[in-house]
Computed example of a mutant assay.
Amino acid sequence: MARLEARQWGLVALVAGSPFFFAFLLAAKNPGLVEPVLGTVLGGASWLLSALLGLLGGAVFATFLGMTQGPELTASPLRRVGGLLFAAIPPMLLCIVPAVCLLLAGPALALRLEQGQPAPRESSPRTPQDIAERLRHQLPRVIPNLPRMGPW
């Protein structure tokens, strides 16, 4: 990690701060979403864990980015882009995506537990007839008029 340049540390900060940024966007879009987070232990813990996952993602990104810094990999622009993608994919999949999922699921789960409602469970259809019946009710009653093909 010590071989990174200043502009690369900016990329690391962007990756590490992405859950924070997403949390602020969620709070600005729906202020009622912040109340369950601040009011319950589970909601606050989910946001804290997502922030920690973001920081861990930044550290993993910095480590992978440091591994791609060599004269053979920085020789061509195509190799630099490939190295950047190689460095970005693991922390995104392992840290940032789960952090965003925690940001979304934590407040909803905290609200349900606070109100005493069990988590909704959708019953899975058991037979093909149940599946067909369910699909028939979900399809629209009238299919829009589509252009018809003429006879060949």
Rank of each mutant, 00 (worst) to 15 (best):
V34P: 00
A51M: 11
A105F: 13
P98C: 01
R141F: 12
L42E: 12
L113M: 15
A45R: 07
T74V: 10
E122Q: 10
R148W: 13
C101N: 11
G44D: 06
V100A: 03
S50I: 00
E122Y: 13
A13M: 08
N145T: 13
C95Y: 02
F20W: 14
L85C: 09
Q129M: 07
G32T: 00
Q115Y: 09
L4N: 06
P140K: 10
F22Y: 14
R121Q: 09
R79V: 03
V142A: 05
V60F: 14
T127G: 07
V100Y: 11
F64A: 12
Q8K: 04
A110S: 06
L56I: 07
L26V: 08
E133C: 06
T63H: 15
E5G: 11
K29R: 04
L65E: 00
M1S: 05
A62L: 02
G44W: 02
L38Y: 06
A2S: 13
G43L: 02
E5P: 00
G57A: 07
G43V: 08
G17D: 01
W9H: 05
V81L: 15
L102I: 01
A87M: 02
L78I: 04
R79H: 15
G150M: 12
V37S: 00
E35W: 13
S46Y: 06
G66P: 05
P90D: 03
F22N: 05
L65Y: 01
L52A: 14
P90H: 07
E35R: 09
A13S: 09
P77V: 02
Q117M: 05
V60D: 14
V34Y: 11
A99H: 01
G39R: 03
L11D: 03
L94P: 00
W9N: 01
S50D: 01
N145L: 12
W152S: 14
I143A: 15
Q138G: 15
G82C: 09
P125S: 00
V142W: 07
V15T: 03
E5K: 12
A99N: 02
P90K: 12
L14W: 03
Q69R: 13
P19H: 03
Q69K: 08
G10F: 07
N30G: 02
L33C: 11
A27T: 07
G82M: 12
A27I: 02
H137G: 14
S123K: 12
G70S: 13
L55Q: 10
L84S: 05
L146K: 11
Q138I: 03
L84A: 07
V97W: 09
L135C: 08
R148I: 13
T74Q: 15
V15A: 04
P31Q: 04
L14Q: 05
V97H: 09
C101L: 14
S123P: 14
L49Q: 12
V81G: 08
G10E: 05
V97N: 08
